[in-house]
Structure formats: structure tokens, C-alpha cells
Design a protein around this nucleic acid. Structure first.
Length: 562
RNA sequence: GCGCCUGUAGCUCAGCUGGAUAGAGCAACGGACUUCUAAUCCGUAGGCCACAGGUUCGAGUCCUGUCAGGCGCGCCA
């Protein structure tokens, strides 16, 4: 929570004890226009409670407001009490705080001692890591950092799809054609894809291949040595590739507990389900009433399903982590599935089922291009990232060819563009995959924010370190806007966490960057009178650090030069 | 057929739990680099907030209905 918003809320509280501090905090809003003030307290909802007109309540309230150096002006407009903050005073309190706290700025103690489990990314092994997996990966990664900023301990779980019939297919294909990989793909994930694609192509004419695949998966489940060793080999090849991509993006996990991890735990979970199970059409189901289809525990052939493994995983996670929250960052098309899983958990008497939450996101679509792993039409995430990095290199060569460690910077910016493109909008929105959007580095983009950061760094590097400084000198409109905006950052993080919505931070950073660039355009910073220069550099430093922290929360790096 | 999600400028989208004149970016057009990074900034133009009712002092936001698109609806994940 920002210091100023707290003070405003407390001041209102002293004059209006009928409401709790928290209620006041929630009512406080930022007016649409800076001229109206920095915080606004609407009195309309109070009208009924106090049996007075909103306008009267507002003017009474304004009367009773305690003196505070922070308030420059308190206006009553309509039924709003508008607070204009004394920006010079605010700056003198806020900017040193931001500078000394840096990455800790906006951090909350709310989650102290609590754990949040995040299930995200979770790609299918033996299939390539495609752009389709990008969303869960970057949203989950960002949310983990946001919750950590709220004081929680985050457990990042990669629920790998490393079990299932597709492994039977790859085993069959490998045994038949595995020794004829094309030149570039030997031993790589691309080879596995070739096999997967070839399997589906040949299976069109030879349906018995499918039976063979099921047989091999059955063998795998029964612990057949050859099947198991091949599975291990494929799993390793896939994981090696995954880790490469994760490293490129700076994404990490605390646990790689995929579906196969729960094989041994499932019988126990199914045992707990027994009292609720019934047989329907040969399969074991748990009925969930009228408004939901039943939950399938076991297929008619006795094999378990995805849902069974999710259920087992949930129980395991609660027993292991005793989580306060368990977030499933999975596409919105699986909403019903999670609703069912949570309902079954409730049925089992687990109250913590209410702490489990599906965090859905919209589909990644590809326009007219039909993408199908089976047909081999895949856009590798790795290729997307590398294309973005290559383009960044070209831009660097053109604009700033002299900077050192070009490759590092190109990676940070290229990858940042891809990540930001995904996090910029509400996660529920469908994204159309467009190369042009992805490779545009102007406007509302990651590189724009990174560029702004680099610009600020450049200013700071050209000046000596600032020690004593009079921040009351920051009186230009552009400066006041920035100070007020910096103050909102802690609240923004809170909002982002509450809604599990990284885009809240992305939007904030765009706005902060835009306002900084306007300021930069309108005023000189280095060649002004010494005291003013110090004050402006302090502002620049606070902005630079807030952008750095915000980018971190999104999972982007902040290069000092670009 | 039933359920969930989405519908705001030509395009992509913001708009916090209802609040003050609906905001950005892209694309288009016109400007600003002998000076702190032009991956920037300024300006012009662009809107029956899908439609129709309702609730309210107040609705892009809430409720109902309609339309359009997406997704899902027991042996895939």
C-alpha cells in the first residue's frame, strides 16, 4: 500500500468512524483527471446510511478533515471529496523510499507464512514446445512473482503431460523408423516430432498401428523394461529441450512433477473416492448432480484419466504444501473440467477445495492457418523467440551498434517483446498469433518499456551520485504526474494479485513509461541548475527502479542499454 | 439443445469492486533529432460502448432478453 493512500484513508476515518478503514480504502478511487485531484472519495453510497445528501456529507467531511502537510487542497465536487496531494512533500517522502527499497518497493506482508501453489506451463512431453504453451508459461511465471511480492511463498509446479497413449505411438514409430532421422534432427525433440507425424500419416492406411500403440502404452504401464527405457529416453530428450526454452525465457520451476509422478499415488486417491463412485456404461464415475456432467474416475478398461491424476495431484499438493491457494493456470476451455475436479474434492470433504482456483486464459489462435501437431504444422516457441531475438539484433545494429554485449541485450529485448505481447491484455482475451504484432517494437510493447528504462539508466550514468536533495523543487506538471503515479504502484500490485491479472501491471508500466517520456521530452534533466538537476535525477532513479521492479514482476529483464 | 467466455474507434485493446467530459497503441495524415538514447515525443482524424428493455441520484460497468463469434458438454489431455 502506498503511503499517501493510507494517509488519505486514515484521515477520512478520523472524520467518518462509521466506516472501517478497509471500507474507506476500497471506496477511494483515482479521479479520471489529474485536475480533479489524486484521490477521490465518493459519498453517494453513504447517503442512505447517514440520511443526508451526498453533497452535504462531502462538504461536512471536507470540513472535518485533519490538517496534514500532505494535502495541498481538499475540494468538494458533486458528492466527491477530492484530495490534491502536495507533490513536493509527497516526493520528499516517497522517492527516497522507492530508491532505498528498489525491488522491495510495493512488497506486502499480506502473505507472510502462506504458500501459493501455481500449476502452469505443463506441456505435453514427446510433442514439441509450441507457441500454444506460451500463454500458460508466461502468465504463470508472472503470477508467481506477483504473489511473492504479496509476501507469499510460491511453489511453481510443472504438471508435465508425461504419461498417456501418445507415448505408445512414439514408441511404435521409434521402433519402426527411429534409425532414419533426417540430418538435423537426430536425437532432438524435432526427431520425436517427425516420428509422431509419421505415425499419424501411416496410421491412416494402417489402423492396426493404433492398436499397437495402445499395446505399447499398456506395456509401459505394466512396467515393461524396453518400453520404460524408451519412455525415459524420450522424456529426457523433451525435458532437455524444454529446459533450454525455459532458460531462454528466464522461467524456472520448483517442481517437475508430471502426470507420471502420481502413478503410485492414484490407488490411494481412488480408494477415497470409492464411497461416491458408481458404475455407468462400464466406467467408474462420480455423479455431480444436475448441473454438471459426472466425473470420470476410470475408463471401462480400468485405465485412469487426466481428471483422476489432477485429483490425486491436488490432494498431494495440499498434504505437501498446506497451501493457502492453489492456482491452475490453464486455458479457459478446461473450465468445466476444473469445476468438476473441485466439486469432487468438496464431496470428499476437503474444505480447502475452495482455495483451489482455475485461472483461465483465452486461446491462442492462428488466423486461417490450421495448426496441428499431428500434421506437423507447428510453430516452435523456440523459433518464435529466436526470430524475435534476430530482429532485435538487426535493430541494435541499426540504432546502437556500439553497445557491448549485444547478444545479451538482443535476448532480453526479443524475449521481452514476446512475453509482453502475451501479458499486455486481459488474459481471458483470445490472442491471434500475428508475426507483425509480435515483431513490432513500437508503442504498447515490452521493448518500449525497456527502452524507457534504458533511457533513464543513461541519464543516471551521466551524472554523479545524488546525495542531499530538495525534492520540493519538482513542481512541473509532468513531474507531479509521475510522483503521483509512482505512489500507486503498491496498489497496482495488489490489484494484479487479487485478479490474478498480470496485465494490470503491464498497463501500469505502459502508462508510467509514457509519462516519463513526455517528461523527458518537455524538460531537460542534466543541463539545468544544480539543485533542480539533483531533484530530477532522483525522480528518474525512482522511476527507473519502479520500472525495473514492474518488469521483473512480468518476467521481463530490464537492460541498462539498448 | 444446454452451459461458460467474449462483443467499446478501420485493427488490437484499457476503462479498479456502478461514478465526474469514454482512453491508449497500431494503421493513415501533418510536425519535432547541431543538445540528456527518435525503439521517442507533439498534433489531426476516427465512437448509437452489439441491440432492446430494466434497476439506480448515476450504467460501457449490474439484471433480463435478443443477436453475433469462440469454447465446452463421460471413456483425449
Amino acid at each position: 500500500m502506498g503511503i499517501a493512500k493510507d494517509i488519505v484513508a486514515e484521515s477520512i476515518y478520523t472524520a467518518l468512524p462509521q466506516l472501517s478503514l478497509q471500507e474507506i480504502d476500497e471506496l477511494l478511487e483515482v479521479p479520471p483527471n489529474q485536475d480533479l485531484g489524486d484521490y477521490s472519495f465518493p459519498c453517494f453510497t453513504l447517503a442512505k446510511k447517514l440520511k443526508k445528501s451526498p453533497v452535504l456529507i462531502a462538504s461536512d467531511l471536507a470540513e472535518k478533515m485533519p490538517e496534514n502537510k500532505l494535502f495541498e487542497k481538499i475540494d468538494v465536487v458533486y458528492g466527491f471529496v477530492n484530495f490534491s496531494l502536495n507533490k513536493g512533500y509527497l516526493a520528499s517522502k516517497l522517492l527516497p523510499k522507492i530508491i532505498s527499497e528498489h525491488k522491495e518497493y510495493g512488497k506486502s506482508a499480506e502473505g507472510a507464512g502462506k504458500t501459493v501453489v501455481l500449476d502452469f506451463s505443463s506441456p505435453n512431453i514427446a510433442k514439441p514446445f509450441s507457441v500454444a504453451h506460451l500463454r500458460s508459461t508466461v502468465i504463470g511465471h508472472s503470477l508467481a512473482r506477483i504473489w511473492e511480492h504479496m509476501g507469499y511463498k510460491a511453489e511453481r509446479v510443472n504438471h508435465l503431460g508425461d504419461w498417456g497413449t501418445q507415448f505408445g505411438k512414439v514408441i511404435v514409430a521409434y521402433k519402426k523408423w527411429g534409425d532414419e532421422p533426417s540430418e538435423h534432427s537426430k536425437g532432438s525433440i524435432r526427431h520425436l516430432l517427425e516420428l509422431y507425424v509419421r505415425f499419424h500419416k501411416e496410421a491412416e492406411d494402417q489402423p492396426d498401428l493404433d492398436d499397437e500403440a495402445r499395446l505399447w502404452f499398456k506395456k509401459l504401464e505394466d512396467g515393461d523394461k524396453e518400453a520404460y527405457s524408451l519412455w525415459q529416453q524420450f522424456r529426457k530428450t523433451s525435458l532437455d529441450n524444454l529446459r533450454e526454452v525455459y532458460e531462454l525465457m528466464g522461467v524456472g520451476f520448483d517442481h517437475y512433477t508430471g502426470e507420471s509422478f502420481y502413478n503410485d499415488l492414484m490407488p490411494k486417491a481412488i480408494e477415497k473416492l470409492e464411497p461416491f463412485m458408481e458404475v455407468s456404461e462400464g466406467a467408474d464415475i462420480v455423479s455431480l448432480g444436475e448441473d454438471m456432467p459426472p466425473f470420470l474416475v476410470r475408463k471401462s478398461d480400468g485405465a485412469t484419466l487426466y481428471g483422476t491424476r489432477d485429483l490425486t495431484a491436488a490432494i498431494y499438493r495440499f498434504e505437501t504444501f498446506n497451501f493457502a491457494k492453489c492456482l491452475y493456470v490453464v486455458g479457459g476451455e478446461q473450465a468445466l473440467h476444473f469445476k468438476q475436479v473441485f466439486a469432487v474434492l468438496k464431496k470428499l470433504g476437503y474444505d480447502w477445495a475452495d482455495s483451489c482456483e482455475h485461472v483461465p486464459f483465452g486461446l491462442m489462435r492462428f488466423g486461417d492457418m490450421k495448426l496441428s501437431t499431428r500434421q506437423g504444422n507447428v510453430i516452435f516457441l523456440e523459433d518464435v523467440l529466436n526470430k524475435a531475438i534476430d530482429l532485435t539484433k538487426e535493430i541494435i545494429e541499426e540504432k546502437n551498434p556500439d553497445i557491448e554485449n549485444k547478444d545479451d541485450v538482443a535476448r532480453m529485448v526479443g524475449v521481452g517483446a514476446v512475453i509482453f505481447n502475451d501479458l499486455r491484455n486481459n488474459r481471458i482475451k483470445t490472442i491471434n498469433f500475428e508475426w507483425d504484432d509480435l515483431l513490432n517494437f513500437q508503442g504498447d510493447t515490452g521493448p518500449y518499456i525497456q527502452y524507457t528504462h534504458a533511457r533513464a539508466c543513461s541519464l543516471l550514468s551521466k551524472a554523479e551520485e545524488v546525495t542531499t536533495v530538495n525534492l520540493e523543487l519538482l513542481q512541473e506538471v509532468e513531474e507531479e504526474v509521475l510522483v503521483a503515479e509512482l505512489e500507486r504502484f503498491p496498489d497496482i500490485v495488489k490489484q494484479a494479485a487479487r485478479a490474478n491479472e498480470p496485465s494490470t501491471i503491464a498497463r501500469y508500466l505502459l502508462s508510467l513509461a509514457r509519462d516519463f517520456n513526455k517528461f523527458y521530452q518537455a524538460h531537460r534533466i542534466l543541463d539545468v541548475e544544480e539543485e533542480l538537476k539533483k531533484a530530477r535525477l532522483t525522480l528518474v532513479d525512482a522511476i527507473r527502479k519502479t520500472i525495473d521492479t514492474g518488469l521483473f514482476l512480468l518476467g521481463l529483464e530490464a537492460p541498462e542499454k539498448m
